[in-house]
Amino acid sequence: MNDPVIEIAQLSRRFGAKDALAQVTLTFRRGGVYGLVGANGAGKTTLIRHILGLLKAESGSVRVFGLDPVADPVGVLSRIGYLSEENDLPGWMRVDELMRYSRAFYPQWDDVYAEKLRGRFGLDAAARVRTLSKGQRARAGLLVALAYRPELLVLDEPSSGLDAIVRKDILGAVIRTIADEGRTVLFSSHLLDEVEQVADHVILISDGRILISAPLEEIKRHHRVGGRTPSLEEIFVSLAGPAEEGGEPGAKAG
């Protein structure tokens, strides 16, 4: 149950002069819901792209299901459900074509579940993806990411720019995935109230460095001030917010 799904060791990545990731070491265990939080440009997407094998580790290593995602993209990607912020689904496909096309890649695709999700999301099977609203496109992306019940669900800023109803759908999907025993969820977001609702483990990243990686309850307990438990947002601002005079961001990281 607690064997690692993702193991990242001493991962570093530079884009020009900027450290996108610096000496990142993380372990994601099976069955966990991991919220990856950080400001824009903190390194969340870079970290996720390494997990998907879309970026090669410059130094350090990434193992997903014990495999190198660069050396064995099929072995890794066939077990991951991925929804990106860009959600670049092919606009020319109809929703039913998208389902049929996606089905071919995943032997464990569940037709009944896929149809159930399509009905729940109110997606017209005959509608072309490009004619869908942004929220509908996010739902279509979520459908094809969930319908094969992936072992690992990776959501990169899935709620970005979406209305409250679609965000609720996405959170609902995360909760349902958690209900499926043994499945792991990693989702990045800067909407901290969402993370607080579903994550049981929070990773706070700033300027490519991991400031905190701990269970949510432990983080809250650690940052309790005078008997008051601060919200995740307050903790985030105190750790990664602008440096105060004489201080540095992350100075409170334990």
Partner: peptide, 10 residues
């Protein structure tokens, strides 16, 4: 595209 690259194929 990124979509193409995340297909589980070699």
């Amino acid at each position: 595209t990124t979509y193409l690259m995340t297909r589980p194929m070699t």
